[in-house]
Design a protein around this nucleic acid. Structure first.
Length: 269
DNA sequence: CCACGCTCCTGCGCGC
DNA sequence: TGCGCGCAGGAGCGTG
């Protein structure tokens, strides 16, 4: 499942299509989270992508007159393929650049393909997002200040995209473990100092993932894509009932909201 | 403003 | 070996 590091790796991996004119747009299935706009092909054909940006987990393709917005959802991937390679099931969209195509696969169809002709940062999906976790804007201070007078747990705060974007369930679990913070702690009761540590761990975890994935960018672009997705060694995520790597106590699982929360009862307080 | 629950969808793992 | 069930998850959106 693409977390922010995978989306960033994808952004870098599909860089080779920048500057190439779009010769055709093929939509085989427009029923993603929202319907793909029917005018998308008309809006894009003949244009070229000037640059590809990322905001949160959204990929933003600048084509001059507007922006293509792509979200990979839970199961989406974007790959550069040879245009004659036959599409497989769940390959919903091709952006064709002559001999090569950018191909979107998304089995669960939680992803999105949208278009905006206005300023992309004003788009309804992007306008109210919080800070980027890898930017200097994100620090313990952001978490501390947005947590005052809040009753929600620290894990829910960390996953609130109005505060900081791109921290999904896996990175929330892992960062809290690394920071030694129990995920259920009321966010309003955590000190600034502990939030500094937490923000630092979010950055470290994400940077390490990007570096691990970035090292196989060539494979990502030229193969079936699977090798570009690094296999992260998780400390707690998905490890309920297994011994903590740090202390040996068994990792526990609970539910926070609708999501699985993993933690070490000995290392996290 | 805040918190929470619902929803979309398919692949996978598990139990029998 | 095969079948069917339930779970997993990103994040917008509606409700209280």
């Amino acid at each position: 499942m693409p977390e922010l590091p995978e989306v960033e790796i994808t952004r870098r991996g599909i860089g080779p299509i920048v500057g190439l004119p779009i010769t055709q747009v093929v939509v085989r299935n427009s029923r993603l989270r929202w319907p793909i706009p029917s005018y998308l092909a008309e809006a894009l054909t003949g244009k070229s992508v000037r640059r590809i940006l990322r905001r949160a987990k959204y990929l933003l393709f600048d084509v001059g007159e507007g922006w293509l917005i792509v979200h990979l959802g839970m199961s989406g991937s974007l790959r550069i393929v040879e245009s004659q390679e036959p599409p497989r099931v769940h390959d919903h969209v091709d952006w064709v650049f002559g001999d090569v195509s950018l191909r979107l696969r998304d089995p669960r169809r939680f992803g999105a393909v949208l278009w905006t002709s206005g300023a992309v940062e004003k788009h309804a999906l992007l306008a109210r997002l919080g800070v980027e976790p890898l930017s200097d804007e994100f620090s313990g201070r952001v978490l501390y200040e947005s947590s005052r007078r809040r009753s929600a747990s620290v894990k829910q705060l960390l996953m609130d995209h109005k505060v900081v974007v791109g921290v999904g369930n896996i990175y929330a679990n892992e960062s809290l473990f690394r920071a030694g913070i129990h995920p259920g702690t009321p966010s309003g009761r955590i000190t600034k100092r502990r939030y500094d540590r937490l923000a630092s761990e979010v950055k470290l975890t994400m940077h390490a993932a990007i570096e691990a994935g970035g090292s196989s960018l060539r494979d990502f672009v030229h193969s079936d894509g699977s090798r570009g997705y690094f296999q992260q060694q998780y400390c707690v995520y998905g490890r309920s009932g297994l011994p903590c790597h740090s202390c040996g106590r068994l990792v526990k699982i609970t539910r926070t909201g609708q999501r699985s929360t993993f933690y070490c009862p000995n290392c996290q307080h």
